[in-house]
């Protein structure tokens, strides 16, 4: 019997292959090295970047903007989701509005944000919060809809106070969905954070990428793109790990609702 190597080895092979392609294609002249410098040049530029205070400041700005936007969107999404979802009248009344507002591309708000806040970090924050909020809200609404009617009735028949009802019935059922919202929202927030920095010019790695491109520092630009990609991988992995950890105890079988 032929046994295949373990997945991590194959995955490593794939990554090594990518690095090799990135190194080799510009060297043998398949692509212009002004457009795609060899991988080693990107690494060199990255090392150069890592030596500057500006890089670290930008990195921090990006992470801060991301965390802030995600935090605001989470709080707003969860609170509104529980309120809207917990009150049947509110739910039926808001459904169409939510379905209408959700697909509005958040980047459409960029001009408004720039007009209101200039290139301030608030501009980016606005679009991050807008985009992330819907991801969270929709998941929470799904979660609340999932609440066992018997549990709800029980809580009501024992005349639990509203806040106790939320704590004992709504919240535990909605939690897995909240975490799914967190995972999806974390990825979306990063995309919009970088987008805002790139297009609006608020401080962060996105702006540095735009600056590197404008000044023709191509290897540095690629280096920053790689850094941003790695942040994305880390964010995804961390969000998934959080979800798994928090739900180890949870008995419910969850379905992911595509948002």
């Amino acid at each position: 019997m032929r046994r295949t190597p373990p997945p991590w080895a194959l995955g490593g092979l794939g990554l090594a292959g990518l690095v090799l392609v990135l190194e080799a294609t510009p060297r043998v002249g398949l692509v212009d090295r002004r457009y795609l410098p060899p991988f080693s040049a990107m690494v060199e530029a990255l090392a150069g970047q890592a030596g500057t205070a500006e890089f670290w400041r930008s990195l921090l700005e990006t992470l801060r903007g991301w965390a802030l936007g995600l935090g605001i969107a989470m709080v707003a999404g969860v609170v509104l989701g529980l309120v809207i979802g917990g009150v049947p009248v509110a739910r039926t009344a808001t459904t169409s509005t939510i379905e209408f507002l959700r697909p509005i591309p958040s980047v459409a708000l960029i001009p408004l944000a720039v007009l209101l806040f200039g290139t301030d970090l608030r501009s980016t924050l606005l679009i991050v919060v807008y985009a992330t909020f819907w991801q969270v809200l929709v998941q929470v609404l799904y979660g609340v809809r999932d609440v066992d009617p018997v549990a709800r009735e029980t809580a009501r028949s024992y005349r639990f106070r509203p806040l106790t009802q939320v704590r004992t019935v709504l919240w535990p059922t909605a939690l897995p969905y909240v975490l799914t919202g967190f995972r999806l929202g974390a990825a979306v927030a990063l995309i919009l954070e970088i987008t805002g920095e790139l297009v609006i010019g608020s401080p962060g790695l996105g702006r540095q990428i735009a600056e590197a491109q404008n000044s023709g520092a191509v290897p540095a630009m690629y280096a920053l793109v790689i850094v941003v990609g790695l942040i994305g991988v880390a964010v995804n992995a961390a969000a998934r790990a959080t979800e798994r950890r928090a739900l180890r105890w949870h008995p419910s079988i969850r379905r992911e609702i595509p948002a």
């Binding site: 995955g11 794939g14 990518l18 970088i194 920053l224 941003v228 990609g229 790695l230 994305g232």
Partner: peptide
């Protein structure tokens, strides 16, 4: 199995940085 990490990486890059 070979491509999974590579694809994960590409997916994680916020698409707008592809513009520059």
């Amino acid at each position: 199995a070979v491509l999974e990490p590579v694809l994960e990486f590409f997916r994680a890059i916020p698409p707008p940085v592809l513009v520059p």
